[in-house]
Nucleic acid binder design. Structure first.
Length: 734
DNA sequence: GAGCACTGC
């Protein structure tokens, strides 16, 4: 009688449901969230879901989830945890009945989007309504309707900054926690503190196997967090090691690829190398050698296609990894094979079906941070055991595979670290510290990190934020700091934006900051370097690379009608449109903060450019170098690092003082993206930092003292300060 | 006279 009108979830007690109840609803005819009948598509997907390993453990899951506030979950690839667990949680939390949300974080945007789409299909609802996702630049949710949300970890961290109690959420699931991204690490710290304040909030940490114990221990409230284990569904991968260490891993890798091609069963190969240049080089060599092999032995050696893969490759070329292996040259001839040569991008971000052989030389480029000289750099380093395991796993996704490690078993056991160092130990934390302070964390040194960063890294971050006036001398957030934290930028750049109205150049600083926030816009194809350099020369502003970036952005905007403009000027259309996107987001934030977006267009260009350079100084006064000696050698102020102007630098002279965006350590120490500045501005705009009383001795200090003396003399002679008068333009030498 | 591992806000 009542059966037809009763709500499908009738009798469900929040946070106390059984697998039997849930299975009844899942198998039922009526969708409990839309009250519509389930579609045939739903039934089809349900049959596939029921085969996932995690589905068989629903009962076990609910027993644990009902009882505990925090769960650590481990599941191998193919367990279905990312799609199923959040749905299980929804039936228990019933967030739709109390205006709450179940959130599941991902380290990458594509994952958040694609998983949300899949889960919306599984639940027979429209993406963006009951189930949605939230990533930078795209909020695919409907307030009041969305109760299951996939999002990037960085997005949730931003929310935590403004609402430290994360009141909207009933359960928060941190997925891929083993990747230890900076955002996930900070979230773990915040959530550990939060569960004490919010007893109604539940947390699930999802990870691959090796780290589980560490997370369980970390999340000890009275007892360690319980562990929920889900088996994976992959194929076995046989591991081979070399007998002796390989002196040249690229050469060994090429040899191994050719050996596989000659001697192993059909199946595609994935080779891991460290960077673009290495990959393109190996690609060329493999092609040449494979052609030789085929010429020698056309009856047994099939064709080999070689596909490079790295992030700066245009998407269209990245798609080539999904091309099928080449067909035999003649019908019935030896089969073709595909080899993908990739950076770490194929370790986590991209999966390629059909890979049967993995060649792992054991290296990758890793970011390291040196707090002493405040520099992040990339270094080719040995990978960790966890990483090696992940790479090997790429061979077993479709059928049993083989992994050839180009190092000895002994080195694997003894030399490789268990885990890759988490990002928090390898990064400049200026931004993170500001976010934490904004989230109300008072004592950053004693914050409960999963892995605590070096005290010096924290000190460097606090010092920078103090000089930028984001924190006062007691480490409290200032109103300036509060504004700065609203921008998804390094603090130096948000500072520039906030002060830009004083220099009448908000639009210009917006464009420059946007350009500095996207990947390099300059293209330089191997066979057209001269043409590319010439094109760049035409866009160059000799006063500084920052102004060149501004010029490029403006020209891009002026030429939007011309589809080929970017390409014709050897510029990356992808980066430029990204910059445009970033610029709009930053502009919206400025408007929200009621920072007047001021631009004085009637000024003459020299003076206008000077104002822009002054605004740059307000953010980047700590990244300044002084020319010492004749041959273009510079010394960074205070740290006394000898550096050279990067060859890509467009300055037509070698000014005495320069401001730089980036310090790069390659064959030499270079400063990149450099602008000509004046000592007067340093003394005038950032007197706090350029306090000569505490300045280290050296040529830079002497030069600053001379400027100061001259200023005092001038001010004594003249009746008042005249520093607003444009300084005389230097004669240009070409 | 050289380089951009990979994410993310």
């Amino acid at each position: 009688m009542a059966g037809s009108t009763k709500h499908p979830l009738f009798g469900f007690l929040p946070r106390n449901v059984t697998a039997k109840q849930v299975q009844g609803v899942v198998e039922g005819n009526e969708n409990p969230f839309t009250r519509l009948p389930h579609s045939p598509q739903y039934r089809k997907i349900l049959e596939a879901r029921k085969k996932l390993p995690v589905f068989a453990q629903m009962d076990e899951f609910y027993k644990m989830f009902t009882k505990h506030q925090i769960i650590v979950m481990v599941g191998e690839t193919g367990s279905g945890k990312t799609t199923q667990i959040p749905q299980f949680v929804v039936y228990s939390d019933m967030p739709q009945t109390k205006n709450k949300i179940v959130a599941c974080t991902q380290p990458r945007r594509v994952a958040a989007m694609s998983v949300a789409k899949r889960v919306a299909d599984e639940m027979d609802v429209q993406l963006g309504r009951q189930v949605g996702y939230s990533i930078r630049f795209e909020d695919m949710t409907e307030p009041g309707t969305t109760f299951l949300k996939y999002m990037t970890d960085g997005m949730l961290l931003r929310e935590a900054m403004n609402d430290p109690d994360l009141q909207r959420y009933s359960t928060i699931i941190l997925d891929e926690a083993h990747e230890r991204t900076l955002a996930t690490d900070i979230l773990m710290g915040l959530l550990k503190a939060l569960v004490k304040r919010r007893k109604d909030l539940k947390i699930i940490i999802m990870s691959a196997t090796l780290d589980a114990l560490k997370f369980q221990k970390y999340f000890t409230i009275d007892d360690p967090a319980p562990l929920f284990k889900v088996p994976g569904r992959t194929h076995p991968v046989e591991i081979f090691y070399t007998q002796e260490p390989e002196p040249d891993y690229v050469e060994a890798a090429i040899r191994t690829v050719l050996m596989i091609h000659r001697a192993e069963e059909p199946g595609d190969i994935l080779l891991f190398l460290t960077g673009e240049e290495e990959i393109e080089d190996a690609c060329r060599k493999i092609k040449i050698e494979a052609d030789d092999l085929i010429a020698q032995d056309p009856d047994t050696v099939g064709p080999l296609s070689c596909i490079p893969l790295y992030s700066s490759l245009p998407p269209q070329q990245q798609q080539r990894i999904f091309d099928p292996a080449p067909s035999p040259r003649v019908p019935g001839g030896p089969p073709g094979r595909k080899v993908v040569i990739s950076t770490n991008i194929a370790e986590t971000s991209l999966t390629i079906d059909g890979i049967v052989y993995v060649v792992d030389p054991g290296f990758s480029k890793q970011k390291i941070y040196n707090p002493r000289i405040r520099v992040e750099s990339l270094l080719v380093s040995p990978i960790s055991k966890a990483s090696a395991q992940q790479r090997a796993g790429r061979a077993g996704r479709t059928r049993p595979g083989k992994c050839f490690r180009l190092y000895t078993e002994k080195d694997f056991m003894k030399e490789l670290e268990e885990q890759t160092h988490p990002e928090i130990l390898r990064s400049n934390l200026a931004n993170t510290v500001l976010e934490l302070v904004k989230a109300g964390i008072k004592d950053l040194v004693r914050f409960d990190y999963v892995d605590a960063p070096a005290p010096e890294t924290l000190m460097r971050a606090l010092e920078l934020l103090n000089y930028l006036a984001a924190l006062d001398d007691d480490g409290n957030l200032t109103s300036m700091g509060s504004m700065m934290s609203e921008f998804p930028l390094d603090p130096q750049m948000s500072k520039m934006l906030i002060v830009s109205p004083e220099f009448h150049c908000s639009q210009e600083i917006l464009a420059i900051v946007a350009m500095l926030s996207v990947p390099n816009v300059w293209l330089r194809p191997n066979n057209q370097r001269k043409e590319a350099d010439a094109a760049k020369q035409l866009l160059t502003v000799p006063d500084g690379d920052h102004l060149t970036l501004l010029n490029v952005f403006n020209e891009y905007q002026n030429n939007l009608h011309d589809r080929n403009w970017s390409w014709n000027n050897y510029l990356s259309a992808r980066s430029l449109s990204q910059a445009d996107n970033v610029r709009s987001q930053l502009l919206r934030i400025m408007e929200r903060l009621e920072i007047g977006v001021v631009t004085k267009s009637y000024e003459d260009q020299t003076r206008h450019y000077m104002n822009i350079r002054k605004a740059l100084v307000c953010g980047f006064f700590m990244q300044v170098a002084h020319k010492e000696g004749e041959k273009g050698s510079y010394i960074t102020i205070k740290d006394n690092q000898a550096v050279s102007l990067h060859p890509s630098c467009g300055l037509d002279t070698q000014p005495e003082w320069v401001l730089f965006n980036e310090f790069v350590l390659t064959t030499r120490a270079y400063i990149r993206t450099v602008t000509d500045i004046r000592a007067e501005w340093l003394l005038e705009l950032t007197a706090n930092y350029y306090d000569l009383g505490s300045f280290p001795d050296g040529e830079a200090k002497l030069a600053l003292q001379r400027v100061l003396k001259k200023q005092i003399g001038k001010n004594a002679k003249a009746a008042g300060p005249d520093r607003d008068k444009p300084l005389k333009k230097k004669p240009k030498t070409s």
